[in-house]
Design a binder for these strands. Structure first.
Ligand SMILES: [Mn+2]
Ligand SMILES: [Mn+2]
Ligand SMILES: [Zn+2]
Ligand SMILES: [Zn+2]
Lengths: 138, 138
DNA sequence: CAACGGATTAGAATCGTTCTAATTTTGGAA
DNA sequence: TTCCAAAATTAGAACGATTCTAATCCGTTG
């Protein structure tokens, strides 16, 4: 199987998002979007790329994460000051945050119900509602 | 009126929290807790202290914010990676986050209802539930 | 294949925060 | 009061995550 075929879905995804399918973006997308949904930091992704013998600079990892986010392929989540996570699950859902080790897990979408949202002041429009359930183990 | 009397409530608050009422802690508490509830960053508080001609190092501002948080006088909030806010309102409530200028506002406590919280995996205990309603103006 | 513009890169720079080690202040004991 | 030990403050260095710069590379289009 040629790489062209192997990566056809990802290349299409990138093209649809208006992003050139470069070697780096294809490899990073491959790493992030294969398998299950993930919550990944820039450093984590950079390490994974290195482990997979994909040579990408950290700057490109950041560029790619932000471009993907802007294109709606990822969602950026801030739970602790200092580090951003990027969520490969862009559907409407909420999170457990494990304070012990700082990782995130999805909450099954119907397991949190936010009823009765307030009207934002001054005619502002709601762009997103984030529910973070902070938990501690042991 | 002597300073001793003027600051008596704040000094009591500090003592109750097991913190020595130093000049710096009294001044910072005075700045933060007078007036309405606030969502303030370390840099903002340091600037306010400077403007009020209170000489405090930035390190002490950070120390104080963390000590107050640990003592339950403040609550730390992360809405964007890179910067922490400290909330003088420690009661159970949620927030609007204005993406335009990055400021926070309280949501009247009964205006958000989170019904049916999920059980955390692996016997973890919920320590807090944060709801952030991201809004955009204009 | 040429060429233009977008993408990548190494490394420097920036930013918020934390750390270090020296100095000052506090509160209690004598 | 005076003295001391512990706690608090501080300047500045260090840190970790992220962003910037400006040189080089590569994808696309003609
Ligand atoms: Mn970002
Ligand atoms: Mn903190
Ligand atoms: Zn998620
Ligand atoms: Zn608040």
């Amino acid at each position: 199987m040629t790489d062209q075929k192997r990566y056809a879905p990802i290349i299409g995804k990138l093209r649809d998002a208006g992003l050139r399918p470069t070697r780096q973006r294809i490899a990073l997308a491959e790493l992030m979007f294969r398998g299950e949904d993930r919550h990944i930091s820039a450093e984590m992704l950079h390490n994974e790329a290195t482990a997979a013998r994909v040579s990408v600079s950290l700057a490109t990892v950041y560029n790619t994460l932000h471009q993907f986010t802007q294109a709606g392929l990822l969602r950026e989540i801030a739970v602790e000051a200092g580090r951003s996570y990027f969520d490969t699950n862009t559907s409407d859902h909420h999170h457990f945050y494990f304070e012990n080790d700082g990782h995130l897990e999805d909450v099954a979408s119907n397991d949190v119900v936010v009823s009765s949202l307030p009207t934002p002041p001054g005619g502002a429009k709601i762009s997103r509602v984030d529910v973070v359930i902070r938990v501690r183990e042991d």
